[in-house]
């Protein structure tokens, strides 16, 4: 039954479910979702956490309606370029940022509501051969792009009216930057992972490229999801879509590596693999605080506690539809899980 398909399986050693099904939203158009996210939306001092779903040609905003019901309040229609992803931007309200393109990102657009003329609208933030983009604190957006042989790493400050208030460039490394993560604990530090498996560190304020540190060849194409500084070390949470299976740690979906930024030496701290008896490689995922979630090739979703170093929840694939997307909510312990049939389920993780 559908209820069974939406219920996490109990893992050995866990006495109760820590992923609770809350509600489900389904687009009547039957479009296949390419991404899902949450966004703060409101007016006159009141705001609520809404869900945003994207399919290739449109992006929809869903508001919560009691009890456990979602209402689609607006759909932005996009042009001929397909939507690839929704880019969450912290510290913003009434603003949805999306990336459009074919094999790689060609445009970044803002979708918003304009109270000036009481209408929903969209505006272009950036176009080009964009390799990576991330929403930063204080309504900023960082991206890496290539023009000819030159790489540009640029920060754009967004206004709630959809304007780009300010643009700042950071010193680019030689290799293409494929992912970014802000460093918790050091306000102006930012890290990136590159196409040749290095972690680079910037000073956001000055734009300086501070350090380049190699991750190693065992885990190619590593992507950084989170970084934090503690006790003089830089801890980076990485995913490894192309990691080789080993007897020691199986197929690790995420790894935590500690770098000494002064010497560029590193050591593995923790890896997150599936519990025995479950198979599947990492397809895509997201990290929030100490929680990591991933969609696996088996069509299941797994959740790990990075502090405990173990898998804490598993959503099995349904018999008729697989899980395809997993995102953490912008607030609280919400988990958004998307299925191949276009439906999105909201869970609470505790």
């Amino acid at each position: 039954t559908e209820a069974e398909q939406l219920t996490p399986v109990l893992l050995d050693g866990l006495r109760e479910e820590n992923l609770q099904f809350i509600s489900k939203l389904k687009d009547s158009s039957g479009s296949c979702a390419v991404d899902v996210s949450s966004v703060w939306w409101g007016a006159a001092g009141y705001r609520e956490l809404c869900v945003v779903t994207a399919c290739e040609s449109s992006v929809s905003l869903w508001k919560p309606q009691a009890p456990d019901h979602w209402e689609k309040v607006y759909t932005w229609q996009l042009g001929e370029i397909p939507v690839i992803q929704i880019i969450p931007v912290p510290d913003t309200c009434n603003l949805v940022c999306i990336a459009l393109g074919n094999l790689e990102i060609g445009e970044i657009r803002l979708l918003l509501y304009s109270s000036e003329n009481d209408s929903f609208k969209q505006s272009l933030v950036k176009s080009g051969n964009i390799k990576a983009v991330l929403g930063l604190r204080d309504g900023k957006l960082i991206s890496s792009s290539r023009a000819m042989q030159e790489q540009q790493v640029e920060i754009v400050s967004l206004s709630e009216t959809g304007r780009c208030k300010d643009r700042q460039t950071l010193m680019p490394p030689e290799e293409t930057v494929l992912a970014f993560a802000e460093v918790e604990g050091v306000r102006d530090a930012l890290v990136g992972t590159t196409a040749v498996n290095s972690v680079v560190v910037w000073n956001l304020k000055t734009g300086q490229l501070l350090k380049k540190m190699h991750i190693g060849y065992s885990y190619p194409a590593s992507i950084c999801h989170r970084a934090y500084s503690d006790s003089g070390l830089l801890f980076v949470v990485l995913s490894h879509p192309h990691a080789k299976e080993s007897e020691l740690c199986g197929n690790p979906a995420f790894r935590v590596i500690a770098f000494n930024p002064k010497t560029a030496r590193s050591t593995g701290v923790m890896f997150s693999s599936l519990p025995p008896g479950h198979t599947g490689r990492y397809l895509e995922g997201e990290v929030k605080d100490a929680w990591a979630a991933a969609v696996l090739t088996s069509g299941a979703i797994a959740v790990w506690d990075l502090l405990l170093g173990c898998c804490t929840a598993l959503l099995p694939p349904g018999s008729d539809s697989r899980w395809t997307l997993v995102r953490w909510s912008a607030a609280g312990a919400g988990l958004l899980a998307g299925r191949a049939d276009g439906s999105v389920c909201v869970y609470r993780y505790a």
Binding site: V186, Q208, L210, K211, A258, P261, K262, R265, T267
Partner: peptide, 23 residues
Amino acid sequence: CSDSDLGPISLDWFEELSSEAPP
């Protein structure tokens, strides 16, 4: 992880690297 594996650790690594890196 010990100091010997990772080399000498500095709590002020960000400020130190910022002062050493080219502007």
